[in-house]
Simulated scan of single mutants.
Amino acid sequence: MKAVFDERQWRHDPKHFMANGAISANPEQPERIRVLHEAALKAGCAFEAPADSGLGPIAAIHSAEYLQFLETIYSRWRRIEGAGEEVIPNIHPDRRAAGYPKSAVGQAGYHQADTACPIAEGTWEAAYWSAQTAIHAAGLVLAGECAVYALCRPPGHHAFGDMAGGFCFLNNAGIAAERLRAAGLRPAILDVDVHHGNGTQGVFYARDDVLTVSIHADPARFYPFFWGHAQERGEGPGLGANFNLPLERGTGDETYLEVLAAALTRIRSFGADVLVVGLGLDAHVNDPFKGLAVSTSGFARITAAIRGAGLPMLLVQEGGYLSDDLGANLTSALEGAVG
């Protein structure tokens, strides 16, 4: 399998993370790159670096206002007397239609959904090349590859069109899907991360030309809390083009595969001719977030079932955090994807 990665993704090294009122080390560590890269090589992947396709494919789903914020906010933040080392919001608007402030602090609150997406010196560069990785991988699919792996880090599925969140800044899977759609294909995005792909849903929620499907731990008591419920089906032209499949905490392989079958049925009914998979590995039983209980071998069964849909497949790395099983989980998933 061909795979894509850019070394500049190492330059995002977040420090801050808060959960339940306690501050700890950020789980989205650069070390994830080493583990995932080695695991992909073990699965037989051949890596190449992405070309620079510029901002155009990124701006196809992200607002110019937001991209300007991401590119400039760190240097602006450093001019604030007494500011912390990372851009972390401390105030949020009560609605997206609220006024847009000139203040760096106010814009941080507007464009960062939570405190899990701190921005430091290397964040924009890493996020940009993570997105370029997905764009280049989409190009390989357009060139005829049946399955391609994009090692994207930071991940992307919590990033909305104008808002970061949950370790994510640019929506890599969404950018890739839009690239495929612009080339004349009819893409579906299938997100198998343990967390709902709320940013991906938000980007395409009112559209009928990209199907978004997410299998995830029930957000009633799990991040991202406010999105990912079964009744969220899309709106306007997109009504029926969003399909959420929340699972009970602790769900294991067999039930997961049954729900995956329903997801693949919907993808077939949509008439998709290419599939973008948000490949989260944090559904594993030993992942630090402990939302679901998929086994290592279960990931191979999941990707084999997806392969059975018979569609060209772009696997975009989402979550999956440092544990003794992370590398084995990716190797299993990639081996299942190629048979």
Rank of each mutant, 00 (worst) to 15 (best):
L275D: 10
P14Y: 00
V210M: 07
F299W: 01
G139N: 02
G166S: 06
I119L: 10
N244D: 15
E38D: 15
S323T: 03
E48R: 15
L170S: 07
I267D: 10
M1F: 09
A183F: 01
H16C: 04
G278D: 14
A59H: 04
P288K: 12
V4H: 10
L36W: 10
P14H: 03
L311D: 08
L36E: 12
G82E: 14
S24K: 12
P154M: 10
I267H: 10
A300C: 07
E232P: 13
Y256D: 05
P118Y: 13
G56H: 07
I88M: 10
G291A: 06
G54M: 11
N20D: 03
V210L: 07
E71C: 02
D208L: 02
M313N: 02
Y321I: 13
L190W: 03
I175H: 05
Y110R: 06
F160R: 14
A51R: 13
A43T: 04
N172C: 10
A49I: 07
G252Y: 11
E81S: 12
A120D: 13
A46E: 12
F289W: 12
H157G: 02
A241P: 00
R96I: 15
P118C: 15
T251K: 06
R79S: 10
A337H: 00
Y256K: 09
L185P: 01
L264M: 12
H37L: 15
E38T: 14
T212F: 15
H195T: 04
E254Y: 09
A183M: 01
D193V: 11
N244E: 14
L315A: 07
G99D: 06
G291N: 08
A104L: 05
G197I: 11
P30Q: 03
R8L: 11
F299Y: 14
A3L: 00
Q231I: 04
G336Q: 01
G82H: 14
G166I: 05
I33H: 01
P57Q: 06
P187K: 13
P224Y: 03
Y223P: 01
L70E: 03
T303S: 11
F204T: 10
I302K: 10
R32F: 05
T133R: 03
I33W: 04
Q9V: 12
G238T: 06
R249P: 07
N171K: 15
L180G: 00
N171W: 14
V105M: 13
Q201K: 03
E318G: 15
A46L: 07
A39N: 12
E86G: 13
K2G: 00
D191H: 14
V35Y: 12
A220L: 04
C45A: 15
E145C: 08
D282E: 09
F270M: 08
D13K: 12
Q201C: 01
R266N: 09
A25S: 08
H284W: 09
G44K: 07
E85D: 13
E31L: 09
A182F: 02
D273L: 06
R32L: 02
A22Y: 11
L170Y: 01
H229E: 13
T123V: 13
H92I: 03
A51V: 08
D324F: 09
L67N: 05
